[in-house]
């Protein structure tokens, strides 16, 4: 049986791991390679680097970081943040990434999804969607630029289009829940899972192992991504996975 995946996310800037609340207030969390190694040894099923430093120097640093990580970590690695071109995707895959995550550029030019899927396979192409609930409605709108710019797209419809264009997975972040540690947006997650055939990785809001259990069962997500719950040391991965297993959720122990 396909197991549910637990994915620590490392937001990187200038070669360091940072994490904010509601996409702001960044705090330094440490050395990415060391954190990646530790998470891998702890039983993380995959790792995601999201680079929030879109400067040219930042990009070169990111490629170096991916190379170093690939030498030491033998689980799948997804890299995202400011990717705009097929050449950038190629550079990151050659450096050792298994998948890339594209967000703003996919909204601006959806053909990029198809171009990447044709060149490297759908399994490499993760489309990241940051979504915010339209006030008082069961409807979520897509935002780009770290949650600041409305894209004028419905999140469920955009997920469907991304799949149609060749995305292999959807990385779905709730802007409302992100950084709150109050739980994932289960309704948003389920709405997207039900709309697409490809795996959905839920993100934003994890504060307790119960939150991951809820999004993997009620939310029907294929994978749960989280950052601060792991970085803070509050709930180490083995503890989270043991809890999920105790709830009857199939995970890799």
């Amino acid at each position: 049986m396909l197991l549910k995946r637990i994915i620590p996310c490392l937001d990187t800037a200038g070669g360091r791991v940072v994490k904010g609340t509601h996409f702001e207030q960044l705090r330094d969390q440490g050395d990415p390679v060391a954190l990646a190694r530790g998470y891998s040894e702890d039983g993380a099923d995959e790792l995601t680097f999201l680079d929030i430093d879109a400067t040219p120097q930042g990009r070169a640093t990111l490629v170096e970081l991916v190379e170093q990580t690939a030498h030491e970590v033998f689980i799948p690695l997804t890299v995202g943040g400011g990717i705009r071109e097929v050449d950038e995707i190629r550079t990151l895959l050659r450096a050792g990434a298994d998948k890339v995550s594209i967000q703003t550029a996919a909204v601006r030019r959806p053909e990029l999804i198809t171009e990447g899927a044709r060149a490297f396979g759908s399994q490499c192409m993760v489309v990241a969607i940051d979504a915010k609930r339209a006030s008082g409605k069961d409807r979520w709108m897509v935002f780009t630029h770290g949650g600041r710019t409305p894209a004028g797209l419905d999140a469920v419809g955009w997920a469907r289009e991304a799949e149609h264009r060749g995305a292999g997975e959807i990385l779905l972040t709730s802007i409302d829940a992100d950084g709150t540690r109050a739980g994932y947006d289960l309704e948003l997650t389920r709405a997207v899972v039900d709309a697409v055939q490809i795996p959905v990785i839920a993100s934003g809001g994890a504060g307790h192992p119960k939150d991951l259990a809820a999004v993997l069962t009620q939310g029907r997500a294929d994978a749960a991504l989280a950052a601060s719950i792991f970085h803070s040391g509050a709930f180490p991965i083995p503890q989270v996975k043991a809890y999920l297993a105790s709830q009857g959720i199939p995970v890799r122990i």
């Binding site: 396909l2 995946r5 759908s122 399994q123 292999g168 490809i198």
Partner: peptide, 11 residues
């Protein structure tokens, strides 16, 4: 009938 491609950890 499950999702394809088969992506992820399996035993």
């Amino acid at each position: 009938r499950e999702k394809l491609p088969h992506v992820g950890w399996n035993t």
